[in-house]
């Protein structure tokens, strides 16, 4: 796919967005009945479901930590989620790598010292992929963790950004990601502005790094507004049922 088509002469991307525009985000919490906390988020056509169980007794006694909680992340992609049907392999290395990235992202944010000798499980199920599966999963996990009532120092908001035709673009979709545009995923703690996870798997010129990170961080802050609004709404409705 030629680079010229990513941004049309009028400055519009393939799906009609402006370069600095985020996709439409829809999210809800408490979608699963059995989980302690759960959330569903849709960013454009990428859909992800998160379930959080915990803090609870660790399943593997040997792995428990005496002074803090153990965080366990499982990331799974549905067979029908992408254009071609892919049979899910039991131990797909790539999925395990993504799961461990997400685990490290949250380990620093969750107040694990509050729950020593216990386990917090985060299960992520991606239902449909249109680019940005990793950052959508992180956002879903944040929502689910808040829904489960697990204390964190801040929201973790993630977003992706890329660089094409001397223009940094925000929130890449599947076509843009597969067109070999360098994609940078950033997970940010909005209050402090600190970056808790940064991932880049392609080549990007050092001069361009700063603006792209900045753009992704701005995207994260926008997403934070959305996540915050969802949490407040669900808390309000929860409060209503309690106070009745």
């Amino acid at each position: 796919m030629s680079r010229l088509e990513i941004i049309s002469p009028e400055g519009l991307r393939v799906d009609g967005r402006r370069p600095l525009e985020l996709r439409r985000v829809n999210s809800r919490t408490a979608v699963l009945s059995q989980a302690d906390g759960s959330a569903y988020i849709e960013q454009g056509n990428t859909k992800c479901l998160a379930a959080v169980y915990g803090p609870r007794e660790p399943t593997k006694r040997a792995a428990l930590l005496h002074d803090r909680a153990l965080i366990n992340v499982e990331y799974s992609v549905a067979s029908f989620s992408s254009g071609e049907r892919k049979q899910k392999l039991r131990r797909d290395r790539r999925l395990m790598e993504i799961a461990s990235t997400i685990k490290r992202t949250f380990e620093n944010v969750i107040l694990t010292t509050t729950f020593p000798r216990s386990e917090i499980d985060i299960y992520l199920q991606v239902l449909q992929i249109d680019g940005g599966a990793l950052h959508t999963a992180i956002n879903a996990a944040t929502l689910a963790l808040v829904d489960a009532g697990i204390p964190m120092t801040d929201y973790v908001c993630a977003c992706s950004a890329g660089y094409v035709n001397n223009q940094a673009i925000l929130d890449l979709n599947y076509l843009e990601e597969s067109a070999e545009i360098p994609t940078l995923t950033v997970a940010l703690l909005p209050k402090s502005g600190k970056i808790t996870m940064l991932g880049l798997e392609s080549r990007l010129h050092l001069d361009k790094l700063e603006p792209v990170i900045q753009l992704a961080s701005d995207g994260c802050k926008q997403l934070k507004e959305n996540i915050d609004a969802t949490i407040r709404e669900s808390t309000k409705s929860l409060a209503k049922t309690i106070l009745q």
Binding site: Q34, L49, S76, Q87, Y123, L124, Q125
Partner: peptide
């Protein structure tokens, strides 16, 4: 047909 359990359902 293929039946799979999402990680969130498997804990029990």
């Amino acid at each position: 047909c293929n039946v799979e359990c999402s990680p969130s359902a498997t804990r029990i």
